[in-house]
């Protein structure tokens, strides 16, 4: 009995050590850059563990006044939101057809769309790079918007198809009886009922677009067209030894993702699970 108690105590201790470790590695890096953004450059270099002596937002003010920070923020907001909304509309339309109707080539198309999940993300980078150059969209916001629309194809289709499948057909039939049009049945009956799926897919795509680096880096050239994750890389050169400002910029870039996550924790976690389960 005593040995049993000891064993259980050890398991308990081990469990909590693992959990504390998990929390530390997740929070400490972010807390460190946030706290440091209120310290002087000298304090950051000499006393890395110390707390700031006074709280002022000078570093933040100077980051915000920097030439391109606001336009980079604007780009990120514009590109992420518009590509997410357009993608949601596109994939909701397709998912609706897949969920509720039979048509020639349905199976083949669905398999083809699903297979895109198996292609490692950057493998198609050259053709996309050339396509953007060819269409004269290089170094424009539009280039990133259309590339990002394509990013969530398979996962969004899975999530949205499942949502539409769960909406009873009787509702559609009743509406058709009252001579509602195809579009009305989709837009006024099905779309509102698929809210949860739309939120999950939307958040997943938005976070992906907001944080995207590879294409953002490859498809833009001028400072004012960069998105925030890309601009960060150039800030590190620009600020070279002004760590206070750099840390303030890092905090400003990471904060929106964290806030969005805190507002929609359940959906984000749900979207990870549905994104991982690839049928």
């Amino acid at each position: 009995m005593k040995a049993d108690l000891l064993k259980r105590g050890l398991v308990w201790l081990f469990s909590y050590l693992v959990l504390i470790f998990t929390v530390c590695i997740s929070l400490v890096p972010l807390l460190w850059i946030t706290v440091s953004s209120f310290k002087s450059n000298k304090a950051i270099l000499n006393t890395p563990f110390a707390l700031p002596t006074e709280i002022n937002f000078r570093a933040y003010a100077s980051v915000l006044q920097m030439n391109n920070f606001l336009s980079n923020t604007f780009n990120s907001v514009l590109i992420s939101i518009s590509s997410t909304l357009i993608a949601l509309l596109f994939y909701a339309l397709a998912a609706y057809s897949f969920a509720k109707f039979d048509f020639i080539g349905k199976r083949t198309l669905f398999i083809l769309f699903s297979v895109t999940l198996l292609i490692p993300g950057h493998a198609t980078a050259q053709p996309i790079f050339s396509f953007i150059n060819l269409t004269g969209l290089y170094d424009t916001r539009l280039a990133l918007i259309i590339v990002y629309i394509s990013a969530g194809l398979a996962v969004s289709l899975f999530i949205l198809r499942a949502s539409f499948l769960s909406i009873p057909r009787e509702l559609d039939e009743a509406a058709y009886m009252e001579s509602a049009s195809f579009w009305q049945v989709f837009f006024h009956i099905n779309l509102p009922l698929a809210k949860a799926g739309l939120a999950t897919a939307g958040i997943l795509m938005f976070l992906g677009n907001w944080n995207e680096f590879f294409y953002g880096f490859m498809l833009t050239a001028s400072a004012e067209n960069r998105t925030l994750p890309v601009a960060l890389q150039f800030f590190t050169e620009q600020f070279s030894y002004n760590y206070t400002q750099l840390f303030a910029a890092l905090t400003l870039v990471t904060l929106p993702s964290i806030i969005l996550y805190m507002l929609a924790q359940e959906q984000v976690q749900q979207s990870v699970v549905s994104g991982g389960v690839k049928g």
Binding site: S26, L232, L250, S257
Partner: peptide, 11 residues
């Protein structure tokens, strides 16, 4: 635990 996963990989 999810937080490092929702912020930009570049950051």
């Amino acid at each position: 635990f999810m937080i490092p996963n929702v912020i930009a990989v570049s950051a």
